[in-house]
Design a protein around this nucleic acid. Structure first.
Lengths: 328, 328
DNA sequence: CTGAAAGCGCTTACAG
DNA sequence: CTGAAAGCGCTTACAG
C-alpha cells in the first residue's frame, strides 16, 4: 500500500489531476469548481490518506517552505534558545527548519551555505563566523534571501537582527561602577572580528571612567578554560575588582575556575553578557546583560518572510534590539 | 544568471543530459564513458557552478539524504547536545537534518511526524512523548525507517538507542548510601509513562536497603519550579538526607530553590541523572549519572543508515548504552 | 465548470 | 562509448 498520488484520487473519481490539485490547494471556489465535486475530492483525499509530495511540488513551483539555519553551536544555550525561538515562529508560519552547526569553522560554514542553498531552502538565517561579508557575497546566489542574526556586518546589504551590544556593554560597566568597582577588567574572546564581540569591547572601553585603566584580556575561543585560568593568574597581582565577561562561555569558564580555586575572589564583582540560568544559582549570583532571544528569533523569521514577498522591492532592514540589565 | 542545469551543461558540450548525469554521479568509468569526455563535463560543471536540484533528484530516486529529528526541547541541554552529536555524525555521512521540538505536546508530535514524512525525509530519529507505541504505529507508514532515542517502548518492533536507566539509578542510590545517606528520596517528574523516567524510578526503588523507606515525589513537568519548592517544604519535617533527581531539569530547579533558600540543606547529599556543567560549579558540587550523549547520537544515526540498507531484512536492534557515575 | 498537455530537473532502463 | 525517451508527482497556462 504505497502513498496515494493526485492521479490515484483523480482516477478513482473520474476527474482530472488538475482539478484535484486545484481543489486541494483551496483554489476550487476561485476557479468555480462545482461544490459537490470539491467535496468528493476532499473526502477521497482523506480516505486515501493523501499527502502531497513536497519534492514534486517544490520542483514545480520553486519553493519548499523550508528555512535553513546556521549557527556556531546549537549546544551553546544561547543558540539553543535562539533556534527554539526560530523554530516556533517558523512552524507557526508553515515552515520547516534545517539546522546546522559550524563550530566556528569557516570552511564548514562555506560548505553548509552552498549545501543548504542546493537543497532548495527558501531562505537562510545565519549567525556567521566569517570575518568579512565578502565570504557571503561570494557564496550567495544573486539576491538569495538571507537574514543575519547575532553577528552582522557593516554596510552589508542584507537583512539582519542583532542587539545593541555597545549599549549593553556600557550598561554592564556602569553597573560595576554602581556596585563600587574601581577598576573593571574585560574578559573578551577571540576572534574579535565577530561583530558582537568587538562592539561589546568598544562599549567597555567607551564607558570607562579613565580610558587608561582599560584592561582587556583576550581568551582564545578554542581554549576558554585555559585562557581564563591564566588570565586569572596574571591578574592576581594587579589591582582590579570587577570583571565584565563578554559572553556566556567566558562567564561559565570563569565560574568554574573560581569554583575550583575556592572563593578566592569574593570581593570581585562579575557581570556577563548573556543571561544564564546558573547565574541565579551560584554564589554569589551573577548579574547579566540579557538578550531578547525570543524576539531575535521571531524577528529573523519575519524579516525573512517579508523578503520572500518583497524580493528586491525594498531595502534590507537592520533590526537592533535592546538588552536588559538583570541585577542580582 | 540563473542556476545551471544538466541541460545547460549538456547543450554547451554537445552531449546528452544522460551522459552528464552519469559522469557527475561518478558512474562514468562504470559505464565506460570516454575519460576526456568525462573531464570536459566536470570542467564545464565547475565553470557553470552547477549544483544539482535535490528536489528533482529526490522526486526521481525517492531519497533525499535528509533525516528528521524530533525531540521534546532542543533548548534543554541534554537534547541540544544530542542533536549536536546526531548532526555531526549525519553530516559526515552526507545527510542533512530537519530538527523539530514537540515541547512534550503529543498533538504537535503527531503533526510533526506526518509533516516530516510528507517532506520525504529518508528516516526519523525520535525522542517521543507518546505514552504508547500505538500512536507511532498509527502514524508511521508501512516500515518507514525510525530510530527511537532516549525514550523507548517495550516490545516495539523498531530500532532504538537508550541507556541502562535502571542500572544508572541503582548506581545513584548506591552512591548516596556510600556517602552516608540513610534515607534517600527520589524527585521524579511527570508523566511517568516516559520509559526513561519509569526505569529510573524502578532502579531507585529496587536498590533501596529498605523498600518501605521509598519516598517518591512526583513533580509536574509543566511546573517544575513550583513542584520542587513544595516538595522541599513538605519534606522539611521529615527525616531524609539524600535526594536522587531523576533528570537535569529537576536538579536545576532544586539547585535554584536551594540557592533561593540559602544553604539550609547543606547536610543533604544530592545526585542527578544527566550531567550538567553547572554541577561542577555550584557549592557543594553535585555528582551525576552521565549519559554517553555523543555515542547515543552517533549510534542512532548509524542504526538508521543500516536500516536504509537493510530494509526489512534484519530485525530491529535495541541498543542499550551504559551510564557513568561522575563523583564530585 | 472541467480536461489535456507541458514542463519543473533529474535518473535509468533500453537501444544501438 | 553515447543518446533518446520515459517518468517521478505536481501546478499552471490554455482551451473549450
Amino acid at each position: 500500500m504505497k502513498k496515494a498520488s493526485l492521479k490515484d484520487i483523480a482516477e478513482s473519481l473520474g476527474v482530472s489531476k488538475a482539478l484535484v490539485s486545484l481543489v486541494l490547494n483551496g483554489k476550487g471556489d476561485e476557479r468555480g469548481i462545482n461544490k459537490q465535486t470539491q467535496e468528493k475530492v476532499r473526502v477521497r483525499a482523506k480516505e486515501l490518506n493523501y499527502i502531497p509530495n513536497q519534492y514534486a511540488r517544490g520542483l514545480r513551483i520553486g519553493r519548499t517552505n523550508t528555512i535553513g539555519v546556521i549557527v556556531p553551536d546549537i549546544s551553546n544555550v544561547f543558540y539553543g534558545k535562539l533556534c527554539k525561538a526560530i523554530e516556533q515562529e517558523a512552524y507557526s508560519k508553515g515552515y520547516n527548519l534545517i539546522i546546522s552547526n559550524t563550530y566556528e569553522d569557516v570552511q564548514k560554514e562555506k560548505k553548509l551555505i552552498s549545501d543548504l542553498i542546493n537543497r532548495n531552502i527558501d531562505g537562510l538565517i545565519l549567525a556567521s563566523s566569517f570575518d568579512s561579508k565578502n565570504e557571503i557575497d561570494g557564496l550567495r546566489e544573486d539576491k538569495f534571501p538571507i537574514v543575519l542574526v547575532d553577528r552582522v556586518f557593516d554596510d552589508f546589504n542584507v537583512d539582519s537582527v542583532s542587539v545593541s551590544n555597545t549599549a549593553g556593554a556600557e550598561k554592564a560597566v556602569e553597573f560595576l561602577y554602581a556596585r563600587g568597582v574601581k577598576r573593571p577588567v574585560c574578559f573578551s574572546i577571540s576572534p574579535v572580528y565577530i561583530s558582537s564581540i568587538s562592539e561589546r569591547i568598544q562599549g567597555y572601553i567607551g564607558s570607562l571612567k579613565n580610558p587608561n585603566d582599560a584592561k582587556l584580556v583576550q581568551i582564545p575561543h578554542d581554549n576558554i578554560a585555559g585562557g581564563v585560568a591564566s588570565a586569572l593568574a596574571e591578574l592576581k597581582n594587579e589591582d582590579y575588582d570587577g570583571i565584565f565577561c563578554v559572553n556566556n562561555n567566558i562567564a561559565k569558564a570563569l565560574l568554574r575556575e573560581l569554583s575550583n580555586q575556592g572563593d578566592q575572589l569574593k570581593d570581585v564583582q562579575i557581570i556577563s553578557f548573556d543571561d544564564l540560568e546558573i547565574f541565579d544559582i551560584v554564589h554569589p549570583k551573577i548579574s547579566a546583560i540579557a538578550q531578547p532571544i525570543d524576539e531575535i528569533g521571531k524577528s529573523a523569521v519575519n524579516l525573512l518572510l517579508n523578503r520572500f514577498e518583497a524580493g528586491d522591492k525594498h531595502k534590507p532592514e537592520g533590526l537592533v534590539l535592546d538588552t536588559v540589565l538583570v541585577e542580582r
